[in-house]
């Protein structure tokens, strides 16, 4: 099939049919920041940091590059003033949830985002879904999942599955842009592992 020619940041880029704007940019060496993209996983569009300005047929819109399909004649601008401002606000919001995330702080420096702009509500998770999707799509273990919805949405391990699968895998840990995932796992594990039997320490039972 013939390649699709589109323009990214003034550069003519050839993309294969079915490619997203993000992938097209990547193949042309144009970096678009992202927090929730992973090459092995289906596009998800959770973090919106990859938002770009796209001109299609005379209409300008802001789209998530990781989801938007590359089209013929599309004109994409990855770093306009407006795009940068959107990313800045998004980062500030995420930093209110995960104030210590190194990935976020690095991007915040780049976009001039103020980590202290919004009141801190540390859930330590930005709901990028990398762990949930990696576990489901790549490992097919489904050990970690989203719970609840709206402002209360969070990630959690399913204890029954986690106890069997997670100890030898833990492949999702390095994917996490914050440290929330590991914390959630440590919590699950601590709930699953019964405290040391009194007999092994010898103290409590003999005294009781």
């Amino acid at each position: 099939m013939s390649d699709i020619i589109l323009q990214i940041d003034g550069k003519e880029v050839a993309a294969k049919p079915g490619m997203t704007v993000f992938e097209a940019a990547q193949s042309a060496g144009i970096a678009i920041p992202t927090l929730c993209h992973h090459e092995k996983l289906a596009p998800y569009g959770a973090c919106r940091i990859c938002t770009v300005e796209a001109d299609a047929g005379g209409r300008t819109s802001f789209v998530a590059a990781c989801l938007y399909p590359a089209e013929k004649g599309l004109v994409v601008r990855t770093r306009t003033e407006q795009v940068n401002r959107m990313r800045k606000v998004l980062l500030e919001q995420m930093l209110s949830h995960a104030p210590d995330s190194e990935d976020l702080l690095e991007l915040a420096g780049e976009y001039g985002a103020d980590p202290h702009r919004f009141e801190k509500e540390p859930s330590f998770c930005i709901l990028c879904g990398l762990c949930v999707r990696y576990c489901a799509e790549v490992k097919q273990k489904h050990a970690v999942s989203f719970f609840d919805r709206g402002a209360k949405r969070e990630i959690n391990f399913i204890p029954e599955i986690a106890v069997k699968e997670c100890w030898d895998c833990k492949e999702c840990f390095p994917l996490c842009p914050t440290s929330a995932l590991q914390a959630a796992y440590v919590l699950t594990e601590s709930l699953l592992t019964p405290p040391e039997e009194p007999s092994s320490c010898g103290g409590c039972s003999s005294r009781g």
């Binding site: 489901a136 399913i158 599955i161």
Partner: peptide, 12 residues
């Protein structure tokens, strides 16, 4: 259906 999916739906 994986349990994680059921928990996701039932809490949603």
């Amino acid at each position: 259906v994986p349990m994680s999916r059921i928990r996701h739906i039932t809490t949603f």
